[in-house]
Design a binder for these strands. Sequence first.
DNA 1: GCTTGACCTCAACTTAGCTTGAGGTTGCAG
DNA 2: CTGCAACCTCAAGCTAAGTTGAGGTCAAGC
Lengths: 155, 155
Amino acid sequence: MAGQTSAKTLRKTDLIPIGEMARRTGLSVSAIRFYEERGLVEPIRTSGNQRRFLRSDIRRLSFILIAQQLGLALGEIENQLAKLPMGRTPNARDWNAISKSIRAELDAKIAQLERTRDTLDGCIGCGCLSLKKCELYNRGDHLAAKGPGPRQVLG
Amino acid sequence: MAGQTSAKTLRKTDLIPIGEMARRTGLSVSAIRFYEERGLVEPIRTSGNQRRFLRSDIRRLSFILIAQQLGLALGEIENQLAKLPMGRTPNARDWNAISKSIRAELDAKIAQLERTRDTLDGCIGCGCLSLKKCELYNRGDHLAAKGPGPRQVLG
DNA sequence: GCTTGACCTCAACTTAGCTTGAGGTTGCAG
DNA sequence: CTGCAACCTCAAGCTAAGTTGAGGTCAAGC
């Protein structure tokens, strides 16, 4: 059992330096270091203090990139990744759960933008171009009595 | 003609100090000063160097607030406002033109999010949960040959 | 004519998400 | 065993969109 090339043994090709990680994920080296600082990955170190990443970290980092493209903030991504085990390639169940939660956020953002667009449309189309009754446009005047409450103009 | 209270004469009630502007627009005093720095409004000054805004500036500032709620960056708003004359209340034609351009930006953002959502849906629903062929998820590996080009994972 | 709240400037700080640079070390190929 | 690309840390800088604070001035009511 000891010293055998078991499934768990680390081979040298499984320890990936940061430059190769950058190439394989499309992230910059500095971004990867930054993510480590944020606790999103935890590479091991060589005796000379250089980072070595596991193959599963490619997935973690790719996930970060994808989730950002999906519009999630790093903080949210941090929460999602917290559900995944370090050093293990996340499985279908993990991904499925996360996807659902991302999908919900996307839906919410789309709905918000659509509401906004409808408000704008109402304003353009409703005759308010007189600039006398346009809700959107005249809100400033109506605010006069309400004190300086910050930004709750729309929705 | 001289000294008469003509339509162009400034009355004292037409010169609004910054605090009242804040109250009437819902912006903070510091934000209004900041917008002046950015060139979005150009208040006149009293002999004692205090700002005095014109009534038309209420519209300009309200517009900023609204456009931000609509998701425009200050830079974009700056561009829109550059089309409006300083010191004149923007008219229906102005507003109409700007609204259309905002509407287009909203549409684009919504479309982008919808594309993103569809990609995600495709990924969840298409059997890619095997994690072997999921385009979204495995992109990192495929990137291996392409050099460290920054963030163009999704569309 | 004084008090006091509103106003002024300027500099520094904030959050997010990194990048850039200086100055120094590692590790692998030849 | 040497050369040099790739790596390291730490500090500072960047953009956006302001906020906060210090220290000082203005203006309007009593």
